[in-house]
Nucleic acid binder design. Sequence first.
RNA 1: UGGGGCUUCGCCAAGCUGGUUAAGGCACUGGAUUUUGAUUCCAGCAUACCCAGGUUCGAAUCCUGGAGCCCCAGCCA
Length: 582
Amino acid sequence: MAEETKASNFIRNIIDADLAANKFAGRRWSGQPGPAEQHKVSPGDTPKIRTRFPPEPNGYLHYGHAKSICLNFGLALDYEGVCHLRFDDTNPEKEEQEYVDSIVDAVKWLGFDWGPNLYYASNYFDWMYQFAEYLIESGNAYVDSQSADEMRASRGTLTEAGKASPYRNRPVAENLDLFRRMKAGEFADGAHVLRAKIDMTSGNINLRDPAIYRIKRATHHNTGDKWCLYPMYTYAHPIEDALENITHSICTLEFEDQRPFYDWLLEKLAQGGLLQRPLPQQIEFARLNLSYVVLSKRKLIQLVEEKHVDGWDDPRMPTLVGARRRGFTPEGFRRFAEMIGVAKADSWIDMSILEACMRDHLNETAERRIAVLDPIKLVIDNYPEEDEELCEAPNHPQHPELGKRPIPFSKELWIEREDFTENPPKGYFRLFPGNTVRLRYGYVIKCEGCTKDEAGNIKSVHCIYLPATRSGTPGADSVKVKGNIHWVSAKHSYAAEVRLYDRLFKVENPGSGGSDFIADLNPDSKRVITAQLEPALRDALAEERFQFERHGYFVADRVDSKPGTPVFNRAVTLKDSWAAKS
RNA sequence: UGGGGCUUCGCCAAGCUGGUUAAGGCACUGGAUUUUGAUUCCAGCAUACCCAGGUUCGAAUCCUGGAGCCCCAGCCA
């Protein structure tokens, strides 16, 4: 593949400048995350940059995470760096091993590799604790014994400064004693909290003595019951980055206000000789907003719990497990991330962009097959009853090397109901009485009419075929036709379950204007049908993706398919300029 | 006068150390190829950069003022 020049963005500009200034030249790396002391005698850190994807294992990854994953891992790849996968597991009440596993799977599925750099914030608890003691000793932290309510009240408001806690000037020795006893489990949850001592009058509320440690008796998925004291994200995250030698700590915009604290903390710790310089820098970018879907964790949970979808991996869910079942591809997501870019302006990406990226990749890679989704019988009146023959269909029109496969042809076929009409609208060039059309990879046929039941519903379409026009023979092009429709032989095709998925919501911005987003669900987001498929499809392997010609891209469902009877999910339709016009 | 951030084509988004015809992609519109109304190809698509002033020979880029939108008052992340 040709060398692509990556689109410039503000993060790449920062990295370019850092690299040009040789900012990271002095860093050491002991092979494992650790404080300054540990890295001190080690060799230089070879990767040019270190980024990280730091999910909290408290839910399933969604499309928004895909943007962040592609960004962090992609940057590492481009700059000969590495990207760590780090679980930010500082709140035992919300986190579970199940989520850790699913996150590992999802990032792997997207095609990224963290090598040996799989880490857990919870493995740094000892260091974090020591650093907290240092902060206390250096007069930068204190134990506050106010209740949560009192703390909230004294924090002030957006426009009024906060007031100092009565415990703010506790002597160092007392703070240290209290903090150690907090760790030892002498106090009830919520009795005390450790706070950074910064500025209660700051315009930035995050600097009004943020809480950095709370007492919480909960079993942690990784550390078990070792701790009853857990660090807050605010405190933990910068330290995690520093211990891991992260050069660029990329996060979303809502953490922008947190950056002054991030820098304050790391600077204090570095001054105390605890952390190696240069310190990591936090860079914020705009999170993904996608139309026709919701990405907030709360809403996703609601969809699952209220059973509006069939679980977290429902193909309609904007989760990565859902996308996988849907038939979306990792390459499609990476293309998407590349296409939407990264910037600081809040933006809304239309779902059609993601769909287009999936089509792009699927078009290149998916083999073609024939499926009649809404079958109606087509009878070829002048074709002998007992005859049958094999037609050949290429597996991919742009890739002849993928070979061909035989498709049985006979007197009675299934065609799409919408490929025939008695009263063609202007511009319609499929089947209607008197019109000729090609049966793809077969013969040209001339439509004679149709038969109906008593109610007037069309039962079968009748036609005659032109024997000399068989595809692949010299006479194939002797009759020019505009229309080209697909078909399967009724005698040889088989009925199979196919799920037609569509967008989960019927409006661009579900729940906008204060309405209930549930009311905006698309009632037709899932249709289960029985389709007539060409014989070759029986052999489809779970997760194998195909283009059903003239329909779209489908995947053999990875959970419901059984050997010999795959169930197909529609990932996305083909672009349809005829439907768009009419 | 609480703090922080953002504003370039319908949607993203380069550019921001002042001088380019204001990149590129998607969408859209033409046209060519095509046994998928698909794909591919080729062409078109901002005298205009939130607004108003100013500096300058010259401003999307610098200055001043204004408008709009987003985020922050968890012992969540």
